[in-house]
Amino acid sequence: MSAPVTNSEKTAPITIQRGAPGEEPWMETYDVPWRPGMSVLDAIVWVRTHADSSVAFRYSCVSANACKECMVAVNGKTVYACTERLSEDGSEVGPLKNKTLIRDLVTDIVPPKENLRTILAERAKG
């Protein structure tokens, strides 16, 4: 579903780690309209829709917890962004630590046999 539309004044801060490999990562905090029960993914989608569309984040199914693409670290714990609730006091979101960083919240979770660069490198080896 799309970003929640809300009239409430209440917001919650979400702090997102930004940056690509080779860059010093930095943190950016956004105040997101808060709705009871909202997920971390709802908040990231709100940021991409209304504050900064360049935040890199991988997800497909939005809320169904079917695609399993949305894994991130929230306050240091590995979770699915679409099932983790946003804390009213603020959540800090970063990329998975045990995967190669691509940019911002996106890490390399593509199976090597489906990754174009890896496929081409294998082919070049013959």
Binding site: C61, A64, N65, C82
Partner: peptide, 9 residues
């Protein structure tokens, strides 16, 4: 409603 996570609508 209410907000439901982990299941599709």
């Amino acid at each position: 409603a209410p907000r439901l996570v982990g299941m599709d609508p």
